[in-house]
Design a protein around this nucleic acid. Structure first.
Length: 291
DNA sequence: GAGACGTGGGC
DNA sequence: TGCCCAAGTCT
């Protein structure tokens, strides 16, 4: 069956071409895998690498992070982006300690109940840390499967239940081999079957690729609406949080006022940060990261 | 289900 | 130079 060959070819290619990333090491713990997966949500490997090494050296197990202040997690997050992930990782550590005896759960449903862990990350942890047979569906896998199997130029905009079923059908029965196939599909999507300029000449499944067979060669157009940033609340939130991150203690409001002149937008951004728990009020006149 | 949510690098 | 993007999650 073509399906079987796809996984086998991907695994063989992976064994010869995969990047050597520390969270893929046999020494990596489930906690290390979980941290890497959260950091990698919408953030490139090159920027995650140093942050992950620092994070794991400081908080090698969930209990270490849970015992520290959430603000420290936000500070250590640095400029990875989407700092709510740092807060959720801290909440995750607390939940793991209080509800799971300090060990990252291996059950997908239990993983799904943790803050910041969704359909992708839960299955990624189950597959990569616990070597389970689970459909691990991220944007790379959806794109690879859309092209190689469905013959489409690109995947749809969001993950659906159908994607999970489709990917599950591609996985070998044996769990360890299935886990290897899962990471191989991701790596193939990240390095070869890329969004804009797929390197089909380097692809191990080019011979059976439906997109190729259909004669389509041109890379697909953008699948996402362009995301503006300059001038948005997101930029203002980022500027405000950067000030707090780089300060060791509470900061006077006046210093935050200086980063953005439009007070209406600045107040809205700050209110959002407070509502999200990323920032806390200290007295009437100071702000700080949560303690 | 559309939209919010950061950031820096590549073309 | 800007625009597009990179292993998603939550509301």
């Amino acid at each position: 069956m073509v399906v079987h060959n796809l996984a086998a070819a991907a695994v063989a290619w992976y064994d010869a071409n995969a990047r050597d990333l520390p969270w893929r090491s046999p020494d990596a713990t489930p906690w290390g895998v979980l941290v890497s997966e959260v950091m990698l949500q919408q953030t490139p490997v090159s920027r995650v690498l140093p942050a992950w090494l620092d994070w794991m050296a400081r908080w090698p197990a969930p209990a270490h992070l849970a015992a520290d202040a959430p603000g420290e997690a936000i500070r250590a997050w640095g400029r990875l982006g989407y700092p709510r992930r740092a807060l959720r990782l801290h909440e995750c550590a607390v939940a793991i300690v209080t509800s799971h005896g300090g060990a990252v759960p291996s059950d997908v449903d239990q993983l799904l109940s943790l803050p910041g862990i969704g359909a992708y990350t839960a299955r990624a942890v189950a597959a990569f840390a616990y070597r389970q047979r689970q459909p691990v569906v991220d944007t790379n896998v959806r794109r690879f499967v859309a092209r190689a199997v469905a013959g489409a130029p690109d995947a749809g905009p969001t993950t659906t239940a159908r994607d999970l079923v489709a990917v599950a059908e591609l996985l070998p029965d044996e769990p360890e081999l299935a886990a290897r196939a899962s990471v191989a599909f991701m790596e193939l999507g990240a390095l070869v079957c890329t969004a804009r300029s797929p390197r089909c000449t380097d692809c191990p499944v080019v011979a059976t690729c439906e997109f190729r067979r259909s004669g389509a060669v041109a890379p697909a157009g953008p699948t996402r609406r362009p995301q503006r940033y300059a001038g948005t609340d997101r930029q203002v939130r980022g500027l405000l949080l950067a000030v707090l991150r780089e300060s060791s203690g509470p900061v006077p409001r006046a210093r935050l006022d200086a980063v953005w002149s439009d007070s209406t937008q600045r107040d809205r951004a700050l209110s959002g940060l407070l509502a999200d728990g990323l920032v806390c009020e200290v007295g009437q006149s100071h702000l700080a990261l949560p303690s």
